[in-house]
Design a protein around this nucleic acid. Sequence first.
DNA 1: CCACAGCCTGACCAACTGGTCAAGATTTTT
DNA 2: AAAAATCTTGACCAGTTGGTCAGGCTGTGG
Lengths: 212, 212
Amino acid sequence: MNDETRTNSRKDRRRESEKLILQAAEKVFSEAGFGGATMQLIADVAGLPKANLHYYFPTKEGLYRQVVQKIFLDWLKAADVFDNADGPIEGLGAYIDAKMEISRRHPEGSKVWASEVMHQAPVIQDYLETTLTEWTDGRIAVIERWIEQGLMDPVDPRHLLYMLWATTQHYADFNHQIETLNGGAPLSDAQWEAAKQSVKQIILRGIGATPA
Amino acid sequence: MNDETRTNSRKDRRRESEKLILQAAEKVFSEAGFGGATMQLIADVAGLPKANLHYYFPTKEGLYRQVVQKIFLDWLKAADVFDNADGPIEGLGAYIDAKMEISRRHPEGSKVWASEVMHQAPVIQDYLETTLTEWTDGRIAVIERWIEQGLMDPVDPRHLLYMLWATTQHYADFNHQIETLNGGAPLSDAQWEAAKQSVKQIILRGIGATPA
DNA sequence: CCACAGCCTGACCAACTGGTCAAGATTTTT
DNA sequence: AAAAATCTTGACCAGTTGGTCAGGCTGTGG
């Protein structure tokens, strides 16, 4: 009767369960923080008994670590648009669009990351010191090249990056505040478009960006 | 022998103890989040027995509520510079300076606020709907006037405000990440000055602000 | 000097937490 | 078909948490 799920090898089922748990965990951690989240609640959201959850992820900290790592990798990947760009208008414009889209579709991840960093990054400090540092240095070099080529004003690339991160992630981390100030309703398609346009307009004009 | 503290009426002592506890609580809440913070740890930081803490603040939630309220009021007060300004360069410039200074001197408060909003503002939702909404509408009117007067480009005032909040508070909420990317050291005086200048430069130029 | 109201605190408790485990169910391999 | 490996779960435990409370302490007004 029930053969809707065909190719179910033990490995497949395991992967599905782990993904289910990770999704539930991301949601619960983003809503309650690490300290406020409970394994019982994560299990309930995932629709599994708590003991089963511990079978796949022995400790709460280990589960949390995997959630944060996944978020960080997704976020890094989305930043590739930066590389294949000829100038700031194209590159930064696409970067802003990409990060705003993530903030709209997956605000939970951004919140977990923000929470982790705010609490002194007890779990992903090594990522900050290695991967993130390297990534940042690379993009700073790109921006400096654009400045040398006269494609934008001389601006401290580091603070420009912080501004991009802060602004785009704000729409995820503070979505509740933004919704409240929007009369309690989520931003509409048109409002999201206006937000993207506003951010791009102010920043690109702010750095005096010109077409490549 | 010990008469350094002279006028110690019971009311004065009470006020001092409450302030001491509130400061300790703000620190602990900012470091561990509401769920991760414990009354025992707050008591230790304040140097008081836990039972004494419960004498002044019967419940953890009540203590947390007062911490968040105090932060919100301080933050609102610091925004007065907005009002007495003739144009965007003066007004927004002073606002950015003020908020950057708060981020530098009191990052804990900003973190507690961010945490509260990220978790759907369970405690200060009414403030968002009343005080913050009114404040925001008022500043939007000011910005719209500046636009009408031709002192700046037509920009969506709401998204401009979000950008200001996001960027300035980022230096508090993500100070750990910023420090790590700064080689593990806090920003120096000169670096803070550069940060302020960069933010003001990009935003003020981004909105095409001209002197009043 | 006393009495009284407010302040302080060690000891205690019920509720909840992350984590364990043994016994069974299920699937894969032989 | 039977043994081996993997998965599932209810019951359980030790540690921690927010919160209580009785009894002692302290300063103040009479």
